[in-house]
């Protein structure tokens, strides 16, 4: 049996096969343990140079990638758009080519334009990992969501997962839809229609207009952050009403026919999309998601660098030079 590989880049989950996604999730398993050690470092990517190129502010994704890189012993540089050549008018291609001229191996990029990761990947030889492009995809977030769900249920196949909130502006939603469906889960979205992209049904999801229906249907809720700007832009009348009509509250969950697993990609607006009692409740895995984020990103970095999945355990365990 041939072992699947990831290819040069991780741009999204839409282009990946079921086997490739499973490979990443399975490879993440042995890496979870590294973060539990006293000395949280393995030599798998020793000598590799990675640039974290962030054109949008990000705290948790950038830090999670940086931990993943450092725990794999890679050398890393963070470039934020503010204060860089980008702010002086340099275009994306020139920025990337200049970085590449310094002989880097990988780029993790966060960018406000959909398609930017693909654009970059087609123009440089280094591996490109999409850390979120516009409202298109955020593959590592979806992978860590899927890993967290799989940890709890032991599978994804046949599960009912509903993504709640601002679907239109969410790259997390799109990546989750592709990934979950490929692994056999049923996916629904729920929120006001003013925050649903036209044509969403074409992605193979069920659409719920009322949160009560979603709660009755689902095994898992993945609750998206509602950005405060959406109110000013006229998509919804007020955050107050959003909470009253669409908020995931304890009262609503108590009416569900089964216990629902609660995910949130963060950062949370407590009292807007999610009730604090739910976020901090027994079925919330929001912090497990964050922990899994590091392991999933280690797996992605390791696989793109050419690491062999069957050697992941050995790669992390050995303290010797080189992994292969």
């Amino acid at each position: 049996m041939t072992v699947p590989t990831l290819g040069k880049d991780l741009l999204g989950l839409e282009p990946l096969t079921k086997e490739q996604i499973q490979l990443i999730l399975d490879t993440a398993e042995p890496f979870k343990e590294v973060s539990e050690r006293t000395i949280k470092k393995v030599p798998a990517l020793r000598g590799k140079t990675i640039v974290n190129l962030f054109f949008e502010p990000s705290t948790r994704t950038r830090i999670s990638f940086e931990f993943a890189e450092k725990r794999l012993s890679a050398d890393t540089v963070n470039v934020a758009a503010a204060g860089s050549a980008v702010e002086k008018g340099e275009n994306l291609v020139d920025t990337a080519r200049n970085l590449e001229a310094m002989r880097i191996d990988m780029v993790v990029m966060r960018h406000p334009s959909s398609g930017a990761a693909k654009f970059l990947a087609e123009r440089i030889r280094s591996n490109v990992i999409n850390g979120g492009d516009g409202t298109h995809e955020h593959p590592t977030q979806a992978l860590l969501d899927m890993l967290t769900i799989r940890d709890k249920f032991g599978k994804l196949d046949g599960l009912k997962v509903c993504i709640c909130g601002d679907i239109t502006h969410s790259r997390v939603a799109r990546s989750n839809i592709w990934g979950l469906r490929k692994l056999g889960a049923e996916v629904a979205v729920c929120g006001p229609q003013s925050l649903m992209p036209g044509g969403i049904e074409g992605l193979g999801v069920t659409v719920f207009r009322r949160i009560e229906e979603a709660i009755e249907w689902a095994d898992v809720l993945n609750i998206l952050r509602l950005q405060l700007e959406r109110m000013k832009a006229g998509y919804i009348p007020s955050l107050r009403e959003y909470y009253r009509v669409f908020g995931v509250t304890l009262e609503r969950l108590e009416k569900a026919p089964r216990d629902l697993l609660i995910l949130h990609p963060g950062p949370m607006n407590r009292g807007v999309e999610i009730d604090s009692r739910v976020a901090d409740g027994p079925h919330s895995v929001i912090l497990e998601q964050v922990t899994n984020g590091v392991a999933v990103r280690m797996a992605v970095l390791y696989l793109l660098a050419g690491g062999r999945p069957e050697l992941a355990e050995a790669a992390k365990g050995s303290g010797r030079e080189g992994e292969e």
Binding site: E14, T135, H136, R171, R174, G198, G199, E201, G202, L203
Partner: peptide
């Protein structure tokens, strides 16, 4: 154009 392709690509649609 706003439709299934824009939804998939995460691009802002023009209905």
């Amino acid at each position: 154009h706003e439709g299934t392709v824009s939804a998939r690509m995460g691009l802002k649609g023009i209905p």
